[in-house]
């Protein structure tokens, strides 16, 4: 098992290197000149030229790439000039916000999608099934920015149930003591009930907004794999034992149906954690998604490259975890 994990990590190295190269090239060929952005449009040409030289932008590409790799090797993702911080520092403050949002929306998605999928399968062609089919179609098709605005309009502007869509916590509230950077978890750990209530009420709308697509996809997936499993011999065996339908469905059938669903969940998780750019922008969520948008607009290379690298590694780790969870659920899987 440990050997398997090490082997997978080793195999991932060429892929990660490839990604580093591609993002490096892409960020150099894209239009926009960071020197101009730093100095300002009106700056005299020799100032701009000096900045170019000091940033190494005049060096040949291969040399720039070599410097970049050497810098990465020393664990340095570079400096984001538009914030003036180290990229790693910015990530450390931004990433927990994205992670928390992703975790909560995955949680919402799983809590909804699995029961809905199971019920639509066990009552195939019933009203529940038809309604969930239509909602899934809508959920997958609704543009996120529209949904986000509608949610804000209804729950903040009209009903006033939800706080202003500005960040993770009220302006006048102290964030919980920093332990993990996840506000909900930190306020639970420190017993800070005010911060807990605040952070939950701030995260709910963006999390719902972000989870709709996942709910739609996962519910459909659970439904189709449940339909497949329900007709299998071992489910009939479970019934033949006289077990209540609840146990037959939620134990004997669902566990098997979750195996293919897990792949989709992993993909969705990787997709969401890569920064929910639109959701973060609409709700002024201070996560990596909005940070990267800013960096792109500022032609700030270092954070973009750093982000791509970090996401690639995260994606790989998620895939690895999914494969390991497979092994936990399905005893037929062996790791060599």
């Amino acid at each position: 098992m440990i050997r398997y994990v090490l082997k997978r990590l080793l195999y991932a190295i060429p892929g990660v290197l490839g990604i580093i190269l591609i993002t490096f090239i892409l960020s150099r060929v894209l239009p926009g000149d960071p020197a101009v952005m730093i100095a300002g449009e009106q700056a005299p040409p020799d100032v701009i030229e000096n900045i170019r030289i000091s940033m190494g932008l005049k060096d040949p590409l291969y040399l720039q790439f070599f410097h970049y790799i050497r810098q990465l090797g020393s664990g340095n993702l570079g400096t984001a000039w538009h914030t003036g911080h180290l990229v790693a520092q910015d990530f450390a403050t931004r990433f927990p916000a994205t992670l928390e949002l992703t975790l909560v929306s995955m949680f919402i998605a799983v809590c909804f999608a699995i029961p809905v999928g199971v019920i639509s399968a066990t009552r195939k062609n019933s009203a529940v099934d038809h309604v969930s089919r239509v909602l899934s179609l809508l959920g997958a098709a609704i543009p996120i920015f529209w949904l986000g605005l509608v949610l804000i309009y209804i729950f903040y502007a009209k009903l006033g149930w939800s706080p202003a869509p500005m960040g993770r916590i009220g302006q006048d509230i102290n964030p919980p003591t920093h332990l993990t950077g996840l506000y909900i978890l930190d306020s639970l750990l420190t017993g800070d009930m005010v911060a807990l209530k605040e952070s939950i009420s701030h995260i709910i709308l963006p999390a719902i907004c972000l989870s709709t697509g996942t709910i739609a996809i996962v519910a459909r997936m659970v439904r189709s794999s449940m339909l497949e499993v329900i007709g299998l011999d071992y489910v009939r065996t479970a019934r033949a034992k006289g077990l209540p339908e609840r146990i037959v469905i939620y134990k004997h059938a669902l566990v098997n149906a979750l195996i293919p669903t897990l792949t989709i969940l992993g993909l969705q998780f990787g997709y969401l954690i890569g920064g929910a750019v639109i959701t973060e922008t609409i709700f002024s969520w201070p996560g990596v998604g909005s940070y990267i948008t800013e960096s792109i607009l500022a032609t700030d290379y270092a954070p973009i490259q750093g982000f791509t690298l970090v996401s690639a590694i995260l994606y790989m780790l998620i895939n690895l975890s999914v494969d390991l969870i497979y092994g936990l659920i399905d005893p037929r899987i062996r790791y060599e």
Binding site: D233, T237, R239, A240, K241
Partner: peptide, 24 residues
Amino acid sequence: MRQIRGNQMAMIFQEPMTSLNPVF
């Protein structure tokens, strides 16, 4: 009926390869 099934009245199936749940 559930109280009887698998208790006083039990059944064996044709296909032993697929009649057991693979994950338990």
